[in-house]
Design a protein around this nucleic acid. Structure first.
Lengths: 118, 118
DNA sequence: TAAACATATGAATAATTGTTCATATGTAAG
DNA sequence: CTTACATATGAACAATTATTCATATGTTTA
């Protein structure tokens, strides 16, 4: 194994690189993880999720509740759905959206806990 | 209270708007939440966090382990630190970074659980 | 089948952001 | 105090993305 020069602490590095190599998830998982969190990284989508915490609603409900255009809401719902954070159901002309599962609540909760410290 | 016209289901809307108004966090909290998740929404920063799950390391360790430039790593560490996900400690010429608290592990875990379903 | 309604979607624009490059800051050794 | 090392930072560029506008799709009612 080639020696590594960095910070003059050669031994630590080899062990570190070995551990990182063993525990680091695969490239695709890292990418998917980042993609998932990106979805939470927009306040419009977070607002949509907070509405869905309370009720199953249609697109125009959301547009009204959040005071945004139908188009903007629809675009964001598409992203939420692609990432399986919400699901939809048609009822006549309307399409109702709701949370896909409870991970969403948990992830948002953890986030709130974090930012409320200090 | 003015009547709302949307999807021809007037009663539901008034109640929804009331509930949303009561439960929706304040603008600043929504913004902070989105900002926090944005930090997790980049695979370089996630990689850094995975290294820090295993050990306290200096910047050049990270650059080496992730095969990226020192500058790129440093820029990302700054963002992680501003959002209190990591902390740092100087030791001689080096600066060692470690996880700030355990919310980071929990949030990443929840994300992994979510993407590993189906 | 035509009209009205609810939602989805593609293109365009503006804003945000990750990386690189050059350089600055801070620390230790000679 | 000068040099070398470790890290931080500002500017620039490329890439990503949220919203708007116009329009398309799908459903119901007349």
């Amino acid at each position: 194994m080639a020696e590594i020069e960095c910070c003059d602490t050669i031994e630590v590095h080899e062990e570190l690189l070995k551990i990182v190599d063993e525990t680091m998830p695969e490239e695709t998982e890292l990418y998917d993880l980042a993609e998932l969190f990106k979805v939470f990284g927009d306040s419009t989508r977070i607002r949509i999720l907070f509405v869905l915490f309370e009720a199953e609603v249609c697109v125009c409900d959301l547009a009204q509740a959040l005071n945004m255009t139908q188009s903007a809401i629809s675009h964001q719902l598409k992203i939420l759905k692609q990432n399986k954070l919400v699901k939809s159901r048609r009822e006549g002309k309307s399409i109702f959206y709701s949370l896909a599962d409870d991970h969403v609540r948990t992830i948002i909760s953890m986030g709130r806990e974090h930012i409320e410290e200090d």
